[in-house]
């Protein structure tokens, strides 16, 4: 049992990791991430890359929805913006990969900023509808701005190449995606140790008090939109390098619901929650696929029910977590940890 953690300085109390246990866990996580490729299965590597891309994107949505309280129904559209940006610049000009990713984030952030503009006047559910409208309009642009987006057929994406090494397979792409994910997640964690992050939460919890304290709602809401879209844009850019083709169908409206579900299921307003949610939600369809394959001997056409069952499960997860565990997996995780920290005593 751990009774408490005494700290000698405020710096220690304000640290990213507050206890030695947390530092050890983080070290183990990093080691696991470095050692993961040893499993040698390209299926697992593909899955790992996809999971991490979704972690970045979910963290972005979590900043906007979980921390700032602005529901967005258009998150996937910002990913699409990032994916198209990468496809356009790499395909057209062959610019370096990292630059493309930054551009993907920046273009998405710029558009996110614009989409956030109505948040000056409208809030809550109206804003959610406005983001839906923005996503529809972006979808229209992807489909019709053919010279840039390739219209219905979309764009092919060249292989990501860094220092002459072609990252053609998930095994190699992993080494690009993994460090970016770690850095972006830690950056998000840092954000909420500072005045900027606190301002976001203040707006979520009580916008009137936020204003009285001198927080410009407009500025910080837009900033949250821009940051969230930046994360989505980078994630979309990496997605483009993984799938190598971007079309208007790549990021359907249901994808936005996927990320919203990931935030809710994982735990809105905690960084670790975003990670849990993204991992969980990405793995569910894979798990279903495996189950369907396993069921084939008895139900030969089990696989055609895959998509509908997935939709039902996504929906039920959103509903179930909102009703029974609104703080998500992160809260379940916290309770578990607390149980062991106090073991053998019970709370």
């Amino acid at each position: 049992m751990r009774v408490g953690t005494a700290k000698q300085s405020y710096a220690a109390d304000e640290g990213l990791f507050k206890t030695d246990t947390q530092k050890v866990w983080f070290g183990l996580l990093l080691a696991a991430l470095v050692l993961f490729p040893l499993n040698g299965s390209s299926y697992w590597m593909f899955l790992a890359v996809l999971v991490m891309i979704n972690v970045i994107s979910t963290t972005g949505l979590n900043i906007l929805t979980g921390y700032t309280g602005q529901v967005s129904l258009g998150h996937a559209a910002f990913m699409a913006v990032g994916a198209y940006t990468v496809a356009f610049f790499d395909g057209r000009f062959g610019t370096p990969v990292l630059l493309n990713l930054v551009l993907a984030g920046a273009v998405a952030a710029g558009i996110g900023y614009l989409v956030g503009l109505p948040s000056l006047r409208i809030k809550g559910l109206y804003l959610a509808i406005a983001t839906l409208a923005a996503a529809v309009i972006l979808g229209f642009i992807f489909l019709n701005w053919t010279p840039v987006t390739g219209g219905l057929r979309g764009l092919n994406v060249p292989t990501a190449t860094i220092a002459g090494i072609e990252l053609a397979t998930p095994d190699r792409l992993y080494w690009l995606v993994m460090p970016i994910t770690v850095v972006m997640v830690l950056a998000a964690k840092n954000l909420f140790r500072t005045r900027v992050g606190r301002a976001f939460i203040a707006i979520r919890d009580r916008d009137i008090s936020a204003e009285i304290i001198g927080i410009s709602l407009f500025k910080y809401k837009l900033m949250s939109f821009a940051i969230s879209s930046f994360y989505a844009g980078v994630a979309g850019g990496l997605w483009a390098y993984l799938f190598r083709v971007v079309t208007p169908e790549s990021f359907p409206a249901l994808a936005s619901i996927f990320f919203l579900a990931a935030v809710i299921v994982g735990g809105a307003g905690t960084i670790v929650g975003g990670i849990f949610g993204a991992v969980f939600m990405t793995l569910i369809p894979e798990f279903l696929k495996l189950s369907a394959t396993a069921l084939v001997p008895w139900f030969p056409d089990a696989s055609i029910y895959l998509a509908p069952v997935r939709n039902i499960i996504f929906g039920l997860l959103i509903i179930g977590f909102l009703i029974f565990e609104p703080m998500g997996l992160a809260e379940m995780w916290r309770r578990t940890r607390r149980y062991f920290a106090l073991w053998p005593f019970r709370t």
Partner: peptide, 8 residues
């Protein structure tokens, strides 16, 4: 009627 940030 107290306007604190309840989640913090």
């Amino acid at each position: 009627n107290i306007a604190l940030f309840r989640g913090m």
